[in-house]
Every structure is written in C-alpha cells, then in structure tokens.
Design a protein around this nucleic acid. Structure first.
Lengths: 181, 181, 181, 181
DNA sequence: CATGAATGAGCGTTCATTCAT
DNA sequence: AATGAATGAACGCTCATTCAT
C-alpha cells in the first residue's frame, strides 16, 4: 500500500475516533483522547486537521453527508406517508441515540462547506418535494423548516430516556407536518 | 443599604451575568468573564457560588422557576386554544432568543433541585390539564411530552434566524398537539 | 465587663483556636478556619493579629512561654536524674502528640520575641545547670544543645506511632545526655 | 540525542530542581518555581509528574534511595564503631545541610513505594546488624529506632547553625546508641 | 510522514487581606 | 470594636498547538 493510502486510512481513523469520542464525551473531549482512540500520535491528528475546530467541522460535515446519503436512498415503493415517516423517525431516533445530527445541524450549519450543504439541500429537498407531491406533507413546509424540525425532534427525543415517550413526541411532530384535514 | 442587601444584589448580579454569558458564549465561558460582566471580582462570584457547576445549576433553576411562574399566570379569559398557543409560542420564542429553556430543561432536569422541579411540574401540569379539558390539546400528551416538545420547539426555533420560519415551526408542533379531527 | 476585657478575651480565643487548628491541619490551615473555631468573624482575627505570620508567631511564642513555665516549676524533691528525665520525656512526648514544640522551636527560634527567648533561656538554663550540678547531665551540653535535642526527641517520637518505640528513642537520647561512665 | 534521552534528562532536571526548591522554600513552594529552576515550561513538569504530590513523592523516594545506596557502600575495613559513627554523622549532617532526609523519612514513610522502602530496610538493616554484631550499637535498637534517630539527629542539627554544636548533638545521640558500660 | 515531548495561555479555585457597614 | 463581603494575586492543573527527532 502506498504512503498516500496509509495517510488516507489515518485520516479516516481520526475522523471516526473523533466522532465516537465527541458522541461519548462531548466536544470538549481532548484531542489527545481522540488520538489515543485512533491509535495514532497526537501529531498525526494535527497533521490531518490543523486545528481542533477543523476536526470538529469535518466530523459534522461527515454527519451531514450521511444524512444526505440516507435521504437519497429512501425507498419509494411504499406509501409516501409511510416512507416519509420512516425516514423522519429514523433520523430523529438515530440523532437521539448518538446525538449525531442535532449538534451537526444546529451548531455548524452556518459555516459548513457549501458543497456539503448543497448536497444535503438537494437530497433532502427532493425527498420533501416527493412527500409533498404525494400529499404526505403540508405544502407550506420548506427545506429549512424540515431541517429545523429534524433538529427539534432529535433534541426532544434525546431529552427523554423512555422509548414510548420518544415515539409519541415524533408522532406529534409528524402529525403537525401532515396537511390539515 | 446594609451589607446583606448589597450581598443579595451582588448575588443577583452574578446570576444575571452568568445567564447572559452562558447564552452568549455557552457554558464553557469562563467564570472570569462572568465576574467581569457583573462588575465584580472573581472572588465574589465564588463566594456566592462555590463552584462553577453550582453557578450553572442556579442559573438553570432560575430559568425553570421563570417558566413555572409564567405557566401559573397565563391568562384564562381567552379561548383555551388561544392562550395555550400563546404560552407555548412565547416560551419557545423566548427560548429561541435567549436559549433560556432548552439547556436548562434538557441538560439539567435530572439533578435540578426537587422543589424547583416540583413547582414546575405543578404549574405546567395544571396548565396542560386545563388545555386538555378545554379540548385544545390531545389527551395522550403528558407533562413530560409537553416539556420535551417545548425543548424541541425552542431548539428548532433557535436553529433558524428567520422569524417567519420560526413561527411556522412552532405552528407545526402546535398543530401536532391538537386533537385529531 | 469592659470593652477592653472583651477584646482580651477575643485575643485569647483566637490564639487558642489558632494553636488547635495549626496542630490539627498544619500551618497552611486557613485563617477563616481559625476564625470559625474561635467563634469570631475573620475581621476580628485580623484586628488582633495584623497578618497570618504575626498570628503564627504569637502561637509559637505562647508555646515557648509554656515550655519556660514548665521548666520553672519542675519538682526538685526527687532524684535529679529522675526529674530531669521526667521533664525531658514529658516535653518530648507532648511535642510528639501535639507537635507543640518542634515547630515552635525549630521554625521560629530565629525571630521570636527576644523577651520570650530570654525567659526560656533563663528557665531552661537554670534547669540544665541544676541537672549538671547533680551529675545527671554531661557538663559539655549547652542550653542550645538541650533545646536541639528536645526538638530531636520530639520529631523522632512524632515519627513513630508505637509508644514503646517512642519511649526507647527518648531513652537513647537521655542515655547519651548522661555523663560517660 | 533522541527525544527519549532528552525526556529522561528533563525528568531528572525536574526532580533535581524540585529537591532544591523544596529544600529552600519548603514543600509549599510553587510548581511554577520548580519549572523555572529546571529551565522548563510548567507543562513539562506536569507531563513527567501528573500532580504536585507525585513530584513530592518522587523527590522523597529519591532521597530514600540515596540513603539506601549510602548504607550499602559503607566501608567495612575500619573499626565498626568508626564506620557506624561515620555513616550516622554523614547522614545527619547531610540532612542538616540539605534537609534531605528528615522530611522524606518522617512525612512520607507511610506511603512511599514499598519497593523503595524494602531496599532501604534491607540496606540499613544489614548495616545495623553488622554494627550490633561488632558491639558498636545497643542490641535493643531496631531498624525503626535507627531511622527515627536519624530523623532526630537531622532535625536537631538542622535547628542549629553552629557546626560544633551540631557535632555535639550527634555525638550525644551516638553515645546513647552505644551499649551501656 | 509520524511521533510525542515541550510549551504556556488559560481555567477553576483558594485565601490573606481590606474596608464599608 | 466586630463583622463578613469583596478583592485579586497566586496556585495546581489542562490542553490545543508546535516542532525536533
């Protein structure tokens, strides 16, 4: 394997370790801890990400990319209402369990890489349009609204340990998203 | 004014400064900064709150008290649906503007002073029952759900700078809270 | 009782509290703790002793005064060797138990009040001369030697928790103090 | 020189600086001062010794190791009484000049590294047995007694600036250690 | 490229001392 | 004279960042 490949593997390892550590201990966790988790020296972490903030941004962007990817591959065979609810519930629940999205979306949306934001906007926007065309979601809801409500649902779900309560919260928000009778 | 009165005023000043500073810079803001904002020496901050954590807890409890007070004094003359929406919107909006509630409710509910929690539960619980009795809120929504949704709405609103988007988010959640047609 | 009497009582209370606290927690104990122990405000402590060092010096001088007093009143009815050993053992043991003398003698002899030092020198010097005249102590031992050996015995005794070991240590030193056969 | 070698040298420098500074200003001296004396940053001191207490312990253990080493290499060609007196005098005098042993032995014996304590016990114990076998030291004196008396002699010597007085103090203690006529 | 020792600004906290009441 | 709230310098310690190896 070439040096390049090694370097790329290390970059990935750092990113993964950082995501895990930030999830477990919050963003105040030390860079040293991330290096340890990645099995690398701290110098290597700083070689790949010149500041801690850059590392944090990369972690968040990776989360946004995953959200976009998930939105792009949502099944379309089912009833619109069903797959939209599944997507929303899945995102909110994952977020609740791993804090993956809420922080990424709320803390960093302002200065995330425009390309990443664009891909997210494209993928989730398409999903939303399909759901609205199928009559599963209110027409007046925008992309920004949907993202904000995903954050909302994620935070709300995260705030409770009880799975049934969590489900009800998401249900309330999804009900609110449906067109009024 | 007696020393006691001055001391009480200083305690309040510290609490207020801490609330402001935590809102502006997050809870990692330095205690030094809080002292500066309050116009007091760092020693005075620690005299009133022996650790930073104690100060943070006091700030959070004050926020919860304010929420309880607001819930207790909600007008009853209007249509139920109206005053409930007003209360919820007000709380979520205030929270969005000053982050006042989201952090307090989500980060600290677990170990807040039981008395404070009890007062909050009592005041908001009564409000919820009135709203449900009047048919303005779904029967299956509990106190914990409502709190979680307030967090949700606050966080969501906080995630957007646009007032109209913010209003629509809260509207979606409030719609979801209404009994189904 | 006059204000003067009150002030004198407070001074004594501070001195006593300081001695106790220094014994229990060492000289790094806070002045606040001493005030609390004396049942007084911290301002009162500083009114009587303008700095912590002055308070420490006063405590040490009080200990030296007590040693001088003890030396002055040693019984003379017994055999010289007996009362000298009793005096030495008593001082070393008390010192071991309460650290009362070692610190006072070793840390502060250099700058104790000359009057206090003079009284100590006079009282213990007389005792030593009596003991030497009676053939209980080597002639070449001076006042300074004796003080240093009291410190030594006190520290040595303090370094061991076992009463029998402690007794043997003092015994060794006392044997060394006797005239050679 | 490799980083490892530099790191080891720095560790030694810190230890040496700490020993010196503790001697000069007592154990309350600041870690900052130690770093300055070692010509290193404060972070480096804490990298090598994670707390001030750990540094203090290391300094003490190093002192105990030196005492053990000295005891192991005491010459045996001379008269027993001579080499024992030389060893004891040397230790007590060094201790007086640099406070090297008294603090180490008395303040920390309780929780020093068991291995270090064992080496000390072995080396000094052997020395004591030889001295007793040769009739130079009382039979009823144990290892613990000898250590305590070394502390005693060190403290006593430390309490006086005069070399002749210091010599007489040690002499008195050594006389006490000899078998009774 | 990778390493990890070195750095020092900055943090939370303590405490001797001052001074308004 | 007594009080204790206020002060800020100083402490032990952490951690993002740099750089010699």
């Amino acid at each position: 394997m070439s040096p390049r490949a090694d370097a790329a593997r290390n970059r990935s390892a750092v990113l993964q370790a950082a995501d895990d550590v930030f999830v477990e201990h919050g963003v105040t966790a030390s860079t040293e801890e991330i290096a340890r988790r990645a099995g690398l020296g701290i110098g290597t972490v700083f070689r790949h990400f010149p500041t801690k903030e850059a590392l944090l941004k990369a972690v968040y962007e990776q989360r946004l990319e995953r959200l976009a990817a998930r939105a792009s591959t949502v099944g379309t065979g089912n009833e619109p209402l069903t797959w939209f609810r599944e997507f929303f519930t899945d995102m909110a629940t994952t977020s609740a369990e791993k804090l993956i999205l809420a922080d990424a979306l709320s803390d960093l949306r302002m200065d995330a890489d425009p390309e990443v934001t664009a891909r997210l906007r494209s993928a989730v926007g398409a999903l939303l349009q399909r759901a609205q065309a199928a009559g599963a979601v209110r027409e007046d809801v925008s992309f920004d609204d949907l993202i904000a409500l995903l954050i909302a649902a994620g935070r709300a779900a995260q705030a409770t340990a009880d799975a049934r309560t969590r489900a009800r919260l998401i249900d309330v928000i999804l009900d609110g998203l449906e067109p009024r009778g």
